[in-house]
Design a protein around this nucleic acid. Structure first.
Length: 469
RNA sequence: GUCCCCUUCGUCUAGAGGCCUAGGACACUACCCUUUCAAGGUAGCGACACGGGUUCGAAUCCCGUAGGGGACGCCA
């Protein structure tokens, strides 16, 4: 039998790390098994679902590189089918109409709590006494769930879990307004889509017992379940806006590469021996649910950044430049009000290997390229300004300008040897000459080696900046 | 409150009774390299939550305790 998995987000917000990892695991598992990976948007909550969120999820999936098979399924379009299933259940006596009011339900929960039980519906409309007056309001439809015995889920990750049926109440299938609930919709859609493996966050674990009861009521085969532990924030608390629950788009904006994100997410909760850097092909070859741990994992930005810098260095220069270009263009436009030119790209690419050692994200790479994009001499930061203000700086810089003018260096090595030669002639140590030079060219005290820096800038700009300093 | 789950270095993990004086990676520290900052190299710091069993032998099995998490909606 072909394995079919699905990722089923509800479009009520951005696609965040937890969802992205679930999607990745579903994807890898199906590919590993030679199966299919489907995408279903659970948009049955018309209050909270938005087209923007749907779009954000789709974009996030594409950016992460998780291609789904077939068309996206929109759950809201299956409502008639969901209602029809409930009718079947009603006809078979496996579901019933419940007229309890919200206030009554609230009371039931409160009294159950007070009695030391878990809050739940008491089943009063399951078998109403004869002649019970029917309230003048439309009923919700509930599943007539077994009240004795137990329900078992053999979870591929969590293991065998058994819950006493007395803990589970009769869940609502159809609301009083006739719309299907999530519990009903997932089961019907998963069945109709022939999902063989339901892989989702562990927050759904307890839901699966009720869902199993529904499968049983319909006489449908029960899929395999795999509940992935949740991701926690830095502080061990549930992932929230504060730490990491940023949408995937935020990571893209900070210059994270999709492959780095994939590798990071893969290693969060899953391991394969001592392997850390894992290619997509290896991920598909190695991934299995038995390698997924049971404990929740914490989100750690440092490791993501490390992986990102690794993949930036690994990327062929052309591909890196292509990924970097939009960031450079935005930087130049916003800072200097000018469009990015082919010349800019050439300068950045020339210095790319050196720049790469000093950046963990595309944004940092762009920051490091600032002096190459700046049409003028960069305004020195505090430390650079102090260096330039030192007594011997002005003299060194004009001597440097004269010497460069005289030697006409072009290659990094030529610039470097010229600087060394001058330092020697002046009886100064290398840093005494190199640091003012760096400050004049880049406005900072940190930059790639001065030879490379000069060469990337070109003699003309170097002279301009030295004379303007 | 009730039910369910989890617990190896700060973090992600390896470990499926002897291979473990517990391995790798990130982070951190030191040194090397060096014109700055990095990168790189080398070394170091650092964990089996606790208490009982079972066993010749336990990080690995069992039972408690503590701590953490999740679920208990006519949300998904």
């Amino acid at each position: 039998m072909t394995v079919i998995t699905r990722f089923a987000p509800s479009p009520t917000g951005m696609l965040h790390l937890g969802g992205a990892r679930t999607a990745l695991f579903c994807y890898l598992f199906s590919k590993h098994m030679g199966g299919q990976f489907l995408l279903r948007v659970e948009d049955t909550d018309r209050e909270r679902s938005t087209p923007e969120a749907t779009q954000a999820i789709l974009n996030g999936m594409r950016w992460l590189g998780l291609a789904w098979d077939g068309d996206v399924v929109y759950q809201s379009r299956n409502q008639a089918r969901h209602a029809a299933v409930v009718q079947q259940l009603l006809d078979a006596g496996k579901a019933y109409r419940c007229y309890a009011s919200p206030e009554e339900l609230e009371e039931m929960r409160a009294s159950a709590m007070a009695a030391g039980l878990s809050p739940r519906y008491d089943g009063r409309w399951r078998d109403p006494a004869p002649n019970t007056p029917i309230p003048d309001r439309p009923p919700a439809i509930r599943l007539r769930a077994p009240q004795t015995g137990s329900t078992v889920v053999n979870d591929l990750i969590q293991g065998r879990i058994e819950v006493d049926n007395s803990q589970l109440d009769d869940m609502v299938l159809l609301r009083s307004d006739g719309t299907p609930t999530y519990m009903l919709s997932v089961v019907v859609d998963d069945h109709d889509m022939n999902i063989t493996h339901v892989i989702r966050g562990a927050d759904h674990l307890t839901n699966s017992f009720r869902q199993v009861q529904l499968y049983q009521a319909m006489g449908w085969p029960i899929p395999e379940f795999g509940h992935i532990p949740l991701i926690h924030g830095n502080d061990g608390q549930k992932l929230s806006k504060r730490h990491g629950a940023m949408g995937l788009d935020a990571y893209r904006a900070m210059g994270i590469l999709p492959m780095a994100m994939r590798n990071y997410l893969l290693r969060l909760g899953w391991g394969h021996g001592d392997d850390e850097i894992i290619s997509d092909a290896q991920a598909i070859e190695w991934f299995d649910l038995s390698g997924v741990g049971k404990a929740p994992a914490r989100y750690d930005l440092d490791k993501l950044l490390y992986l990102n810098s690794h993949y930036m260095k690994q990327l062929p220069p052309d591909a890196l430049m292509q990924a970097l270009q939009p960031f450079l263009a935005e930087w130049k436009q916003e800072r200097f009000g000018q469009p990015l030119l082919p010349d800019d790209l050439a300068r950045v690419q020339a210095l790319l290997p050196a720049l790469l050692q000093r950046a963990q994200t595309l944004v940092e790479l762009t920051e490091g390229s600032d002096f190459l994009l700046n049409p003028h001499r960069p305004t020195p930061d505090e430390a650079a300004a102090a260096k330039l203000a030192e007594a011997n700086s002005a003299g060194v810089l004009s001597a440097l300008a004269n010497r460069f003018d005289q030697r006409q260096p072009t290659a990094a090595a030529d610039f470097e040897s010229t600087v060394k030669e001058l330092a020697n002639d002046l009886g100064k140590k290398m840093p005494e000459v190199a640091m003012p030079l760096r400050a004049a060219l880049t406005g900072r005290l940190q930059s790639p080696a001065v030879g490379e820096t000069c060469a990337a800038l070109g003699l003309q700009r170097v002279l301009e900046r030295l004379r303007a300093a």
